[in-house]
Design a protein around this nucleic acid. Structure first.
Lengths: 206, 206
DNA sequence: CTAGATTTGTGAAACATTTCACAAAAGCTC
DNA sequence: GAGCTTTTGTGAAATGTTTCACAAATCTAG
């Protein structure tokens, strides 16, 4: 498949969110103009984004909300179920396991690991926190698709190396560290420090 | 000042992080090549990014680590102190107030608000959780520079409208909602659902 | 069924970002 | 200090993304 820009994929996610709102409100069709207005973009952008994947609209009428929701779910790969391992049972990890957005989008946390003996063995949302050293055996018992790294920055690269060696090809990283991984592994990093500094820059330069 | 791309600002933040590492290791000078290698980019990109703000290097030698750290801090506006109000005392909020990266970068949380009577009045990291209805008076007593929105998606827009009316011009939004604000207000959104779906897309299309 | 109004889908143009490539500056060696 | 090496800073080229603008398709009203 032709390479699609990251920015396009993110907008598709947003469109999906808005379409679900519209669906909830009982709206049956929507124009690129209306969808753009909801998301702060332009109608041409919406049509271009969708055109990379096919033509889903009807000229003169717009898009069927239900149909487009389905198409976007397919494009984004949300039809299936993903098993997730969380590595790090600290504060952020604690917040994440309780985040409902995971489950509603088909992402299920099936393992939690930590190195701290005080945490290992504890129950967390129905899951027992395991020793990271048991990762290999646990992954064999119940394989996962995605690793979420929620460790301190210092430990993040070592954890990444480890899960990659165990065959994981998708990582969501919350540690404020730049991970180096092989080309075939996808990493998305959420770095709070970067956001704060981007805000600081914007506040300073105007 | 000439408009600088968001992507450039984010890379500057990364460079700063790496330079601090180098400084910690006692390294005194660094080439654009070495900096690029650490961050997975190219030396030309590093030089171009820096060139928007001046010339900080010495030909044949590279950059003084200490000097470049100082310059980047200035550019990013990290010399000053920012006061932050957190709106929403839920799970994510709880994780955030304990995040050390805030304080070490000069961001100090000085207010926490919520609507839940069960939470109002509680002590959180030395701060008392206040009723959101007291926001106006609290801001008057102790003004803030940045609002961090950590409410459910449904409440986020109303909270944004409110803080904007109270004069806030910078928002860090963790609610999975697209906020609409006036042009002079800066918003950075951290949307976990978007990251998950970008991962899902990457896993699906290859 | 016709005429007018909408709205899509998409090449082409405009704009933005990244990469290239090289002169100029500075360091290093003998 | 001459000659060789390294590395910056930056126009120009290449590449990538967004916006424009319009033909084609479909709908709506009478």
């Amino acid at each position: 498949m032709r390479k699609i820009a990251e920015s396009t994929v993110r907008r598709l996610s947003l469109y999906l969110r808005f379409l679900e709102e519209f669906e909830h409100q009982g709206i049956e069709t929507v124009s690129s103009e209306a969808l753009a207005a909801r998301g702060g973009t332009t109608s041409a952008q919406v049509r271009k984004d969708l055109s990379f994947f096919g033509s889903f609209g009807k000229r003169g009428l717009g898009y069927s909300v239900a149909e487009l929701v389905g198409k976007l779910r397919d494009i984004l790969g949300l039809g299936r179920h993903y098993r997730v391992a969380m590595i790090g049972a600290g504060k952020i990890g604690s917040a994440l396991v309780q985040y409902r957005g995971f489950k509603t989008r088909g992402f299920e946390i099936v393992h939690i690991f930590d190195t701290d003996p005080a945490k290992i063995g504890r129950e967390w949302n129905g899951l027992t926190v395991r020793d990271v050293r048991q990762m290999a055996t646990e992954f064999e018992r119940l394989p996962v698709d995605i690793a979420v790294i929620v460790t301190p920055a210092e430990a993040a690269q070592a954890v990444a190396d480890r899960v990659v060696k165990l065959g994981i090809t998708a990582i969501l990283n919350f540690a404020p560290a730049q991970l180096t991984v092989p080309d075939d592994v996808v990493v998305k990093t959420v770095n709070l420090a970067l956001e704060l500094e981007a805000l600081s820059y914007a506040l300073t330069n105007r």
